[in-house]
Amino acid sequence: MQAVQNKLALAAALLAVTAATHAVDVDVRGEYRTGSEAWRSRIKIGNQWQNNFGASLEAGMFNGKGSLNEFKSDFNEIEAWYLYKTSPDVTVIPGGFLTWSSAGSAIKPYLRVNWAFAPTWRADVRARYDHNNYDVGSTWQMPAGYTYYGRNDQWQFDFWLTKWIGDKTAVEYNYAWNRKDDKQFVYNNGRNWQYLNNLKVSYSVSPVFIPYAEVGYLGKVASLANDDSEWRLRIGSVFRF
C-alpha cells in the first residue's frame, strides 16, 4: 500500500507541474490476458508542451490471476521525448523510458518516425532497445542445478497505422516484434523472439473524454509450461484537461 501511495503522490506532483504549464492527459486503463488469466491496470499522466518536448509518468498495478483479488505494484515508468519536424508531414521523435520495479531498473531509448501520408492516415515506425540495469537468472536448457545470469536485454520494433474516421473516431493497428539480445533467454513461446498484433479503437465523446478499447494477439506465450494462446483485452479512457 505504501508503494501505491508513493505512486499516487508522484503522479499528483507531475499533474500539478504539467497543469501549470499546458494541457495534461490522464490515461486510465484495465487489462485482461486470456491465456495467463492475468488482470492488470495502470494510470498514465502525460503532457506535450508547445516547445516540442513531452513527458509522461506511468504506474502499473497487478490485480490478480484468475480473479481481481490483488492490488500490488507492477512497474513504474517515466518517458520523455522531443518532436522534430523534418517536413510538414514527417516528424522524427527521439526519446526514451526509465522503468523500475522491485526487480530493478531499465533504460529504453528509442527513435520513432511518423508520416502523415494522407489527410486521414498516419504511419509510425519505432526502434527501441531495452537495457536492464540488473542481472536476471535463466535455467533454459541449462544442466540441472545450474542457472545462467545476464541482463536479458531486448530489441523492440513497432509499426503503427492509424486511420481517422470523421473528427471523433480513430482506428489504430500496431505490429510489434521483440528479440532477445542474449540467446540464453527466451520468451514464453520458447523462442528468442515474439510478436504482437494489436487493434485499438478510440472515440472522442467530448474534447476532454476519449474512451477506447483494444484487442491484441500475442501468440502462444501464456507460459513456457503450455502453449495457450495469449489474447490481451484492454478498456480505458483518456481525460484531457
Rank of each mutant, 00 (worst) to 15 (best):
W121Q: 14
T169K: 00
Q184Y: 11
Q2K: 13
K163P: 02
T91K: 10
S41K: 03
G219A: 03
Y195P: 01
N6W: 05
P211A: 04
F159L: 12
R179Y: 10
G137H: 00
L196M: 09
R234L: 14
N6R: 14
D89P: 00
S202D: 07
Y129S: 04
G95S: 02
S101E: 00
T147A: 00
E79V: 07
V125S: 02
K108Y: 06
T139D: 12
Y110D: 05
Q184D: 13
V24W: 03
D74R: 01
G150Y: 03
K200R: 15
L10C: 07
K180P: 06
A144L: 11
S223P: 05
F239P: 05
D158Q: 02
Q154T: 13
T86P: 04
E70S: 07
N178D: 15
R122H: 03
Q154L: 15
R128E: 15
A118V: 06
G60C: 02
I235Q: 05
A213P: 08
L199H: 06
Y212F: 15
V221W: 05
P143A: 06
K168I: 01
I78S: 09
Y187R: 12
Q141C: 08
A16I: 06
A116I: 09
S102D: 00
Y187F: 15
K85D: 13
R122M: 14
V221I: 15
S56D: 13
P207Y: 03
A3Q: 11
V92K: 07
K163W: 12
N178L: 15
T34W: 09
R240C: 00
V4S: 11
A11R: 09
G236D: 04
G30K: 02
A127W: 10
N192I: 11
L98I: 07
P211M: 03
R122D: 11
E172W: 02
M61D: 08
T34C: 09
G54W: 01
F241M: 12
G166Q: 06
L98V: 08
V26F: 07
F159S: 12
Q194C: 10
A3E: 10
G96N: 08
Q154A: 15
N178V: 07
A59H: 14
F239D: 05
A106P: 00
Q5Y: 13
D228S: 09
D227W: 01
Y32E: 06
V201M: 05
S204H: 10
N69Y: 02
E79I: 04
F157A: 11
V90E: 09
